[in-house]
Deep mutational scan, measured.
Amino acid sequence: ASVAVIAAGTQGNIFATSALRSMRFLQILRMVRMDRRGGTWKLLGSVVYAHSKELITAWYIGFLVLIFASFLVYLAEKDANSDFSSYADSLWWGTITLTTIGYGDKTPHTWLGRVLAAGFALLGISFFALPAGILGSGFALKVQEQHRQKHFEKRRMPAANLIQAAWRLYSTDMSRAYLTATWYYYDSILPSFRELALLFEHVQRARNGGLRPLEVRRAPVPDGAPSRYPPVATCHRPGSTSFCPGESSRMGIKDRIRMGSSQRRTGPSKQHLAPPTMPTSPSSEQVGEATSPTKVQKSWSFNDRTRFRASLRLKPRTSAEDAPSEEVAEEKSYQCELTVDDIMPAVKTVIRSIRILKFLVAKRKFKETLRPYDVKDVIEQYSAGHLDMLGRIKSLQTRVDQIVGRGPGDRKAREKGDKGPSDAEVVDEISMMGRVVKVEKQVQSIEHKLDLLLGFYSRCLRSGTSASLGAVQVPLFDPDITSDYHSPVDHEDISVSAQTLSISRSVSTNMD
C-alpha cells in the first residue's frame, strides 16, 4: 500500500485504499475450498504439459491467421470504412471474430473485405477451437489413466503375492535341489530340531500304542527276528556328554522351557516337584528354603522380579524323601529317536503342500481383483469380450473355409453374387472337401465294379455249361463312374476274359 501511495501521489490514498479493500473479495475463495484444490491444478498442469506441443502448434497457427486476416482486412477497409482507421481496430475485429465472440461493433463494408473476412474466419476458427478439443481429450485420457492406475494399485499386491507364491512353489520342487534360497528361508522360521524330535516322538508313541520308545526297546525280541524299528541315535539331556547330531552343545531358554513342560507332561506320578524357592531380598537368592510367592517384596526391581519368575519355571527341586529312583531318572531322560535326515523329507513334503495351498489362494485372490467394480468397468469388459468373440468367430470361419475348400476369392465371389465353382473344380482343390469328394467317387466306382462281377458270377453259375458261358453278354464299365481312378482293366474288353475262362473250363471238362 505504501508503494502504491508513493507512486500515485497524494491523490492515490483513496485509490490504494479501495484497491486493498477490493482484495477482500479473495476471501470468498476460501468458501469454495480453492486453497485446498491442489490436486485439480496439478491435474491441469499435467494435461497442459503432456499436450504442450499440440497446444503450441495450434496457438501458433491461429496467431498467424489472426495477424494476416487483420492486416488484409485493414488494407481493404481503411479507405471505405471509418471503423478500420488503424491496424489496432482491425486487430480487435480479428480477435473478436476468430474467437467466435462477434460483438458486431465493427464489420467490413466492401465486398473484398467481406470475402477476406469469411475466408479467414473459416480457416482461423478451426485453429482457435483446437486447444479446447486438445485439453478436453487430454483430461479424458488423464482421468482414464488415473482410473486404471487405481485399479492397478488394487491389483499390484495380489499380483506380487501370486508371483511370489508361484516362485516358491517352483523352487520347493524336490527335483530342483539346486534352488536353496527358499529352503534357507524356511530353515530360519521353522522350530528347532528338538521340537521336531518331540513332535515325531509323540507320533511314534501313538503308533506304538502308547508305549515310549524306551519301553519298546525293553520289550523282549526273539533271536533272529528283525527289529520293528531301525537303530537310531540316542540323545540324552544337555547335561550328559552325548547330543543329537546337528545340535549345539548350548541350550537356549526356549529349549529349557519346552524341556520343563515336556517333563511335566510325562505324568505327576513319576515326577514330584517341590515348592519353588524364593529369594528373600533382591540381592541374594536362598535356594535351600522354600517360601511362598506372596511374600515377594514390593520394592524389588523389574529385573529381580523377572529373575524370580524364571526361577519359578526353570529351577524345580525335589524333596529328599520323594527323590526318584535311578530307573525313573533313566525313563525321564530325553530320548531322541530320530535324526535330521529322517525328519527333513517329511518336513519338505509338508512345506510343499503348504506352498501349493498358498499358490491356489493367491491365484483366487488375484482373480477376484479382475472383477469389474462399476458400470464403466462392466461396459469396458463387455466390449473387450465382444471384440475377442468376433476375433474367435473370424478365426473359426477361416478354418471352416479351409476345411470346406472355400477360399478368400470364392468368398468374395459369393458376396458379389457370382456363380460358384463347379464340382470338377471342387474335386481338384487341395482341401478337405476335395479329398472327401475324391474318396467318395472312388468308393462308388469300386462298388459298381463289384456289383458287375457278382452279377457275372451268378449268371455263370446258373448257366452251368461252357457254351452258355461264352454266350453271356458282359456289360462294359461306364468310364464316368470311375472318377479319376483309372484301372488298367477298364480299357480292355471283358469278353476276352470271358473267352479265356470258357476255354479253360472246356479243357478241364475234356480232361475229366
Rank of each mutant, 00 (worst) to 15 (best):
Y184S: 09
G455S: 13
L469P: 04
P222L: 05
G209W: 11
E337D: 08
E195A: 09
F308V: 15
Q204R: 09
P230Q: 07
Q204K: 10
Y185C: 07
I257N: 12
G470R: 14
T277I: 03
D493G: 07
Q381E: 02
D187V: 11
L357P: 02
K419Q: 11
V361A: 15
S495T: 06
G405S: 02
P475A: 13
Y373S: 02
F366C: 02
R364K: 06
T318S: 05
S299G: 08
S299N: 15
S283G: 15
Y485H: 08
D401Y: 15
K358M: 11
P191R: 13
G288V: 15
T234A: 04
F456V: 14
R228S: 12
R258G: 11
I503L: 03
S504A: 06
A166S: 13
G417V: 14
I343V: 13
D342A: 05
K419M: 03
D187A: 09
V296M: 15
H448P: 07
T234I: 13
R264G: 05
E285K: 08
V426G: 10
P293S: 12
R217W: 06
T369S: 03
G405C: 02
S487G: 08
R505H: 09
D173N: 08
S319C: 12
A197D: 10
K358T: 01
V232F: 14
T465N: 03
Q442H: 08
S506W: 04
I351L: 13
D388N: 11
K394E: 00
D304E: 15
P372Q: 00
P238Q: 12
L390R: 15
S431I: 10
V221I: 06
I403F: 05
L169P: 00
T291A: 12
R194I: 06
V472A: 11
V427M: 11
E380Q: 14
V287G: 04
Q397K: 02
M511L: 03
A206S: 11
H236N: 05
A362P: 02
F193S: 11
K365Q: 09
T349K: 08
L357V: 14
E201A: 10
I253S: 11
T294S: 05
G391S: 12
L338I: 07
I343L: 09
I393S: 00
R313S: 02
K315N: 13
I257M: 13
A274G: 15
A323V: 10
S463C: 13
K295Q: 15
A384G: 12
S311A: 04
L357H: 12
D478E: 05
R459S: 13
P479S: 04
R505C: 05
P231S: 07
R212L: 06
E337G: 06
S301C: 13
D322G: 01
R207C: 09
D401G: 14
T266P: 04
Y178H: 11
M259K: 11
S242A: 11
P238L: 14
P238R: 14
G464R: 07
L390P: 02
I430L: 06
N208H: 10
K365T: 12
H386Y: 12
R168H: 05
S463Y: 06
A329G: 04
K348M: 05
S395N: 08
P230S: 11
L211I: 10
Q286P: 14
V296L: 08
K449Q: 06
T291N: 10
V347E: 12
I430M: 13
Y485F: 04
S333N: 10
T234N: 10
S292C: 09
T465I: 07
L453P: 02
E326G: 04
A310S: 07
S242P: 12
D410H: 15
F359I: 13
A467T: 09
D484N: 11
L199S: 06
R218G: 08
L387Q: 11
F243S: 12
V507A: 04
S466P: 04
V347A: 10
K412T: 03
D493H: 14
D451E: 08
D187G: 10
P222R: 09
D341Y: 09
E429V: 06
P231R: 08
A346G: 11
G288D: 12
P324L: 03
A177D: 11
Q286E: 10
I189F: 10
P282Q: 07
A310V: 14
A467G: 09
M174V: 07
P372L: 02
A424E: 07
V287E: 11
L211P: 06
T482A: 07
N510T: 11
E247D: 08
A166P: 00
P293A: 07
L338V: 06
M251V: 10
D480V: 05
E337A: 10
P316S: 15
H491Y: 14
A233T: 07
D493V: 05
I189N: 12
S284N: 10
G409E: 03
E331G: 05
E492Q: 06
V296E: 15
L179P: 03
S311Y: 12
P282T: 12
F200I: 06
A467V: 09
G407E: 03
E331K: 13
L454W: 02
L211V: 13
I257T: 03
C244G: 11
V378L: 10
M433K: 14
F193I: 11
C336F: 05
D304V: 13
K449R: 03
E425Q: 09
L501V: 10
S422F: 11
I253L: 14
H486D: 05
D484G: 05
V474M: 08
C235G: 03
P279A: 14
E201G: 07
L387M: 10
R364M: 02
S227Y: 10
D255V: 12
G420A: 08
H236R: 13
V340L: 09
V361L: 12
G210A: 06
N510Y: 04
F302L: 11
T500S: 09
I343N: 13
H202P: 10
S504F: 07
E247V: 15
A310P: 05
G239D: 09
G260R: 14
S311P: 12
V350I: 07
R462C: 04
S468N: 09
S508G: 08
G224A: 08
L169Q: 05
T277R: 12
Y185F: 07
Q335E: 07
A320D: 15
K358E: 13
K367E: 02
D342H: 08
P226L: 10
G407W: 08
Q297E: 12
C235S: 13
L214M: 06
S281C: 15
K332E: 03
D428Y: 14
P222H: 10
V378F: 10
L476M: 08
M433L: 10
V474A: 11
R250P: 14
K416E: 02
Q402R: 08
S262P: 06
P408S: 10
E492V: 14
G246R: 06
R250L: 04
E368A: 03
E440Q: 14
V489A: 05
A329S: 13
S242Y: 01
Q286R: 01
R265G: 06
S171T: 12
G391D: 01
P479T: 04
P408R: 13
P213S: 05
R309P: 12
K367R: 07
A384V: 13
R435H: 05
I253T: 12
S383A: 06
I351N: 09
C336W: 07
A362T: 11
R411S: 03
H272R: 08
R317S: 15
I446M: 11
I356N: 10
R435S: 13
H486N: 03
Y457N: 14
Y185H: 06
R207G: 05
M278R: 13
D342E: 10
A323P: 07
F302C: 02
Y373F: 15
Y170D: 02
M432K: 05
G420W: 14
R355G: 13
G210R: 06
Q442P: 09
G210C: 10
D388Y: 14
C336G: 12
A384E: 09
A424P: 06
D480H: 08
M432T: 03
S262F: 06
M344V: 10
R352C: 05
V443E: 15
M433V: 14
P245T: 14
D428H: 13
Y185D: 12
A471S: 08
A165T: 05
A467S: 04
E330Q: 12
I481T: 04
T277P: 06
A177T: 10
V489G: 11
L461P: 05
K270E: 15
I503S: 04
L357F: 07
P488R: 06
T318A: 12
K416T: 03
S248N: 05
A181G: 09
K419R: 05
T172N: 03
D410V: 05
D304A: 14
R399L: 12
V443G: 14
G267S: 09
V507L: 03
L179V: 11
E440A: 15
W300G: 12
Q297R: 08
R317L: 15
K438R: 10
G209V: 06
D484V: 03
V296G: 02
A233V: 14
V427A: 07
E285G: 05
G409A: 05
R207P: 06
S249T: 14
P282L: 13
V287L: 03
S495F: 05
R309G: 12
G224V: 14
I503M: 15
C235Y: 10
Q263E: 12
D377A: 02
A206D: 11
D388A: 02
E201Q: 09
G260D: 06
E331V: 04
P372R: 01
V496G: 08
R392P: 01
D173Y: 01
V203M: 06
A233S: 09
K254T: 13
R237L: 09
P421T: 15
